[in-house]
């Protein structure tokens, strides 16, 4: 029954295999979380339903076997399978519902706010240190001394101490990190560290030290210059 149902089923299977087993094995990649796999599979299913229902013929070819199977009309030896589906499917839904609502000792899926808003006093600050080769060089020196153990000598978040932290230290060479932010934001983060994050940024487990207790503001601004230069990124500006 339902030769036209076979193609969609195979397609969904292929997409699942790609997401689950192929993408994670691409160099530099990692396993995808189930939330993302579910999202992409839903999109695939939506596409299948849309395409299958464009014309009367394709809709019938897609829908009639499902309808026949569910109503048990002329399905011959598949009756047992039908009863199995009718019993197992609601049980699966129930199990899934129970699993997602029951109390568990597993920590909840993280809904991390990656860039919480900075306090008002840190918005709109501009770097008071001139962007000269000397200051940049000095900033890189400070970076090497204080930041590179975690954020890495290549600004890629892979310092010798990085492995011990979850979440890992930020990779500054990634264009989706410091390149999206203004210098004032970095100043706030370096100065206040993980403990200075607002409630909005919770749950947060950043081990970033509160550098204001050890470094003067001028050094922090120089580190920012060095970071952007070393990571080959530019801060967000409005000019």
């Amino acid at each position: 029954m339902g030769g036209s149902l076979l193609k969609p089923a195979i397609l969904i299977g292929i997409v699942y295999v790609i997401l689950k087993f192929v993408v994670p094995n691409i160099p530099g990649s990692a396993p995808l979380p189930s939330s993302l796999i579910f999202l992409y599979l839903m999109l695939t299913t939506t596409g299948i339903v849309i395409f299958a229902t464009l014309s009367g013929e394709s809709k019938d070819a897609f829908w009639n076997p499902i309808q026949r199977f569910m109503t048990g009309e002329n399905i011959g030896g598949l009756q047992a399978l039908r009863y199995a589906v009718l019993i197992v499917f609601p049980l699966l839904v129930g199990w899934q519902t129970y699993g997602s609502t029951a109390t568990s000792d597993a920590p909840p899926a993280e809904n991390r706010t990656i860039h919480p808003a900075p306090p008002g006093e840190y918005t709109g600050l501009s770097n008071p240190v001139a962007k000269t080769p000397e200051n940049i060089m000095q900033g890189k020196g400070f970076y090497a001394a204080f930041c590179s153990p975690c954020h890495g000598g290549k600004f890629d978040g892979k310092g010798p101490a990085a492995r011990g932290f979850n979440p890992p230290p930020a990779n500054f060479s990634d264009p989706t990190t410091i390149a999206m932010l203004q210098e004032s934001y970095l100043f706030w983060r370096i100065k206040k560290g993980g403990v200075g994050l607002p409630i909005e940024g919770m749950p947060w487990k950043s081990a970033m030290p509160r550098w204001e207790v050890e470094l003067p503001d001028e050094w922090i601004w120089k580190i920012i210059l060095g970071e952007y230069d070393g990571a080959h990124q530019s801060p967000r500006t409005w000019e």
Binding site: V23, I26, G28, S29, A30, P31, L32, P33, S34, S35, L36, L39, L43, A106, P107, A109, E110, N111, R112, T113, I114, N166, P167, P168, D174, P175, T176
Partner: peptide, 26 residues
């Protein structure tokens, strides 16, 4: 629809090295 920071369990986040997927995070 792909978020920058993904909804992930602790185990999934560990495997990804954070909630930011190294490939699809872009």
């Amino acid at each position: 629809m792909t978020p920058h920071s993904l909804v992930a369990s602790l185990e999934e986040a560990r495997k990804m090295g954070g909630t930011h997927h190294p490939l699809l995070g872009v």
